[in-house]
Design a protein around this nucleic acid. Structure first.
Lengths: 271, 271
DNA sequence: TACACTTACGATTGACGTAAGCATC
DNA sequence: GATGCTTACGTCAATCGTAAGTGTA
């Protein structure tokens, strides 16, 4: 099975339509039809049910869609990581930081790693808000290591190590009645007005907007303690007792044998 | 990057020789040379250092060998699992049992699973002695689940669940001075004569030979308690105190979304 | 000089696009 | 009758094998 065929199959499966898939792939529709037929002949089983003018996956097709995506991700990873290992001046390590991780922690990690002997150049990628995006990037080779906030989600195929634990704090307008409190408990939270966002992390782009809203008395929020230096004037942070701690962890593909990744992980666990 | 190219590259990398690799691939040597050159051109980096009459990997080549093998395994897995999902009478689930797991436990698992509603047909594969072979079979799709004995080795990319724990016993010739003991400790083991094999598991084919050797007074062994029913006349088993327990676990690819695998794992954890 | 990778060239295979066919809604 | 997958056919690109070339031990 060639990767080109897998790409063709996945396109048809995702579109449930040969015509649209062909357009997406930039080829004519008959070529796509033939390619899928060839796969079905070689696999000895139909992948699609063509009933009338609808196309749907068979059981075998469902399996191939799942496994094929993983295979394509693995091929893409091989390509990207090979290019990254090219011996010119480009970065040798791609680190993806999920939105919500402490910028201070990231900076500390990068500094500590850069001080190591034989440290590779590190390209830092900031992931968007989509859940699972850093994991996807590790799998398809766009990144080699990820810095993320533990959210109970299982990381299939990835190894990880917790590197920092911190408390949470409530961020309030400076004039709020509770702003003078030395500490608050989670039981007191429901009494506060909406919106309460974000629960688990601070999204970089809109984070400042949120803080402005708080300063204006239009919102409050719960953030990790490490966000305290980033707070503007007009807001107050009160430590929150009884809340689950925010755990930052470093993750990497469990099959990784990169020395650079190993060194970065070692540095991270010793921060 | 096409899988054909990856296969070509891996062959050359493994042989360190274009000629032998071409022979192994069943193609002429110049075709192989051209294919690798094409990959190097597209990746923008050399993969091999051709110095005189020796061929060796560059740093980028080393990365591609590692990642490429994973990608090829993923493609092979996609192929095999799709064929296995074909809707005819073939088995829907391939279980690999590592040498050393209790046959009784395996039988109990298969019986319990077969009693489940919508149970798939299970093809049982007995793996050889090579360490890591069941893991490889899970990765390249020859198997969907594995039954193995925990050996401290990390299972990269695999999820697992412990399903049985048992003690160990010392197997001695019936006439041995220690055969009458009700129990032994690990401290007493070094006093016994060689060979002491196997440490962690009973290999099926040669296991009977080992037991015959013990009956003849030429050896002894340490086996899991579950092997007791398989002992022939002429040997005696003495429980071993203080030894690390034998843990049998079930493992599967962490990205598996197969309902059949999930059902089998659920049954296994409830044994 | 022999071994081993590369370049050159002609042949074959296979993938593609256009056009016609055929079934379903 | 229109939509949409399939079959037919001619074209083009890619891969392959044989043969000649080049460079090192």
């Amino acid at each position: 099975m060639e990767t080109r065929e897998l790409r063709y199959f996945v396109a048809v499966a995702e579109e449930s339509h040969f015509g649209r898939a062909a357009e997406r792939l930039g080829i004519a529709q008959p070529a796509l039809s033939r390619a899928v037929q060839k796969m079905e002949r070689r696999l000895g089983t139909p992948l699609f049910v063509r009933s009338g003018r609808t196309v749907s996956l068979t059981a075998a097709g469902t399996v191939l869609l799942d496994e094929g995506r993983h295979a394509l991700a693995a091929v893409a990873a091989a390509d990207r990581r090979t290019r990254r290992a090219a011996p010119d001046g480009r970065p040798g390590l791609a680190l993806v930081a999920k939105a919500g991780v402490s910028v201070e922690l990231l900076a500390k990690l990068l500094d500590a790693y850069a001080a190591e002997p034989d440290a590779a150049e590190v390209e830092v990628i900031l992931a968007g808000l989509e859940p699972g995006e850093p994991e996807r990037m590790l799998r398809d080779g766009r990144a080699d290591v990820a810095l993320l906030v533990a959210d109970g989600h299982v990381l299939g195929g990835l190894d990880h190590e917790d590197i920092a634990t911190e408390g949470r704090m409530v961020v309030l307008p400076a004039g709020h009645p509770l702003a003078a409190r030395a500490t608050m408990t989670v039981d007191e939270l429901p009494a506060l007005p909406r919106p309460c966002w974000p629960e688990d992390g601070l999204e970089v782009r809109d984070g400042t907007q949120l803080l402005q809203l708080i300063a204006l008395g239009r919102a409050f929020s719960v953030l990790p303690e490490s966000s305290r230096p980033a707070l503007p004037a007009g807001v107050v942070a009160v430590p929150l007792a009884g809340a689950s701690p925010v755990v930052t962890r470093i993750a990497w593909p469990s099959h990784s044998r990169s020395l650079a990744v190993a060194a970065l992980v070692r540095v991270a666990t010793r921060l």
